[in-house]
Design a protein around this nucleic acid. Structure first.
Lengths: 347, 347
DNA sequence: AGCGGCGATGACAACGCTTTCAATACTATA
DNA sequence: TATAGTATTGAAAGCGTTGTCATCGCCGCT
């Protein structure tokens, strides 16, 4: 079967120009929404473009303008559903503005990380970058990228000091609220599983937990704190540690849903009933929180909206459209979602 | 803070050429691995390129060559983790060959789907397409894309009749094996939750189930079959239907993990012990299968490897490198993964 | 009427690469 | 040593846009 593919050659700007009786430059102006075009002319051009179904050639565009129509999402494997939610928000922002999203998985601990990013940027026509955690906290990388003139925004940076734009949720306050909720359910011994130490949010969540204990006058017991790594496996391990003790906690707050799922697994293994004798809470409200039994009490972050917002900002930066007075960071609201995995102790 | 960004202008082919003492055409040849270059020349050029850290400008490249260095993954929300696994395999294939991956979420039922895809293709410089299920089964879309000369490959098409390349797993055989395993555990009444009717795999899995019953001489009870939609919620609903019956099944085979997770939820709600009085199995071996309690018996598909392979094929097609005698489809091996959610009836 | 200015438009040169085709340098052969 | 043939290389013309700068009207003001 060797039939020749038709591959209809796309319409070019020249055709639109002659069809509308103007120069290509004018068509270009119209397509780029530049101001200095008489309204009647603009209409004529738009009509011609529409009729011919003209789509500007992106390669020619970025070659000539030395501009990029790409946003690259740089990530190192945070939770899967977080990634997907984020992607979908980012895609939405890109779609609205005619940009495309590139994916750049990477190893945040690699010594060549900066080099890889620079390669990405130069190889892919200078896209803007979205740094997701924990990359958003690598201050040297941030510094260098900035120095190199790379446009980027950060997601959930622990340290908002750098002038680049970012989005985040107040992790500390969220963890504080969740902990207070547990305390208000009557829990006095609340275990805490810390998140990955290289994620800024981990520290903030821990501080929220501690703050709530303090404010409610509960003593802080260091032995109830264990170090997790945001993974299901680490959740199991930490759960085992906490639940093996004789004076085990009556509630466990895991710094994300996957670890909470791991704790639930161990609780089942040890035949500890949840929530009657153990409450378990997570963080993030990923789909995981519904798959577990019981469903997880957790904190919902509007990940998709955050992604959309921050990518929008990035594109504005790439276009130099950003008003100077615009605030560099945006905090999004979180929400405490109460499900079956938590309750008062002893029924 | 108005400091000017340095934005070091990238190295161009001209600089490499003069640095190596050759014409730009020769540099171009070397960069594109064309044959007709003396070895000594090639070395000289490579050295120069390396020294200057030359990266060909992709926009210029695709403008001049009218070729695309993009692969677009077209999907309509199959399971989240499936997507991510697929992405990561696709990215790997792209990375190896210097291509970039674009994401194109879409609505497979939209009447304008074809139009949207054509827009994508023309707007984004004619990328190759990866059609994931259920898009891979829209024969009219496939037909039209082919007619338009769009290069594409399909993932898990139910109907391999079209000559475009594809990857798949033998869903029927996998479901057959899983069902036989359940039967061999002593189950005689095995409920089946069908997958989304618009996914080709659904039918194949169902046939595998039926085939195993038949071969093992078990009667086929239509009332044990319920229609799901691959979602957790539909799993719950179907689970409720099946488990509310007096003569409820002793095992339930859900056509994917999320639905199986839903069934487990209902089992817990009804205080039906798994696996002693009910076995539950899923399909896909997504991370979900580990989060549930008990962990799910399921079928593992090498999604990432499949993605990598099919994207590799796509790129070969885009480059016209594909040997004619190459088989158009590739079947990947699946694996039965036995976990805690299944066992012999009555302990 | 003459002049400065500004709004609207177009001509033409990039942008960095590939393609085409011609030119040159070899190599094997007679 | 000449000769054809092949391997290697390069010059120049695009590819489809945007950037720069010149041009052309037209307005208001002297």
């Amino acid at each position: 079967m060797l039939r020749k593919k038709p591959t209809t050659r796309p319409v070019t700007i020249d055709e639109v120009a002659s069809h509308a009786g103007v120069s290509i430059k004018t068509v270009s102006r119209v397509m780029n929404r530049e101001a200095a075009v008489r309204d009647s002319t603009r209409q004529r051009v738009l009509a011609a473009a529409k009729e011919l179904n003209y789509k500007p050639n992106p390669a020619a565009r970025s070659l000539a303008s030395n501009r990029s129509y790409f946003v690259a999402m740089v990530y190192d494997n945070p939770s899967a559903s977080y990634l997907l939610d984020f992607q979908s928000g980012a895609l939405e922002a890109c779609r609205e503005r005619g940009y495309s999203l590139l994916l750049q998985p990477c190893d945040y601990q690699s010594p060549q990380l900066l080099e890889e990013l620079v390669t990405l940027v130069t190889e892919r026509g200078n896209p803007g970058l979205v740094l997701t955690p924990p990359l958003s906290d690598l201050s040297d990388v941030v510094e260098q990228l900035d120095k190199l003139g790379v446009k980027f925004v950060r997601v959930a940076p622990v340290d908002p000091e750098h002038p680049s734009p970012y989005v985040a949720v107040d992790d500390r306050a969220a963890a504080y609220d969740l902990t207070r909720y547990l305390i208000d359910m009557g829990h006095k011994r609340i275990g805490f599983i810390k998140g990955h130490p290289h994620h800024g949010a981990s520290q903030a969540r821990f501080e929220g937990y501690r703050g709530a204990l303090r404010d409610r006058g509960l003593s802080f017991d260091k032995t109830l704190i264990v170090q997790g790594f945001f993974s299901f496996d680490s959740g199991e391990q930490c759960g085992r540690t906490l639940l093996a003790r004789k004076d085990r906690p009556t509630a466990i707050f895991a710094s994300n849903d996957e670890m909470a799922a791991g704790v639930l697994h161990i609780a089942h293994e040890l035949q500890i009933d949840v929530p009657s004798t153990l409450s378990v809470a997570g963080f993030d409200d990923t789909p995981v929180s519904r798959y577990t039994w019981p469903s997880l009490t957790t904190i919902r972050q509007p990940v998709e909206a955050m992604a959309k917002s921050v990518v929008g900002t990035l594109i504005a930066v790439m276009r130099d459209e950003r008003k100077k007075d615009q605030s560099k960071g945006t905090l999004f609201p979180y929400e405490l979602v109460i499900r079956g995995s938590t309750g008062p102790f002893g029924r």
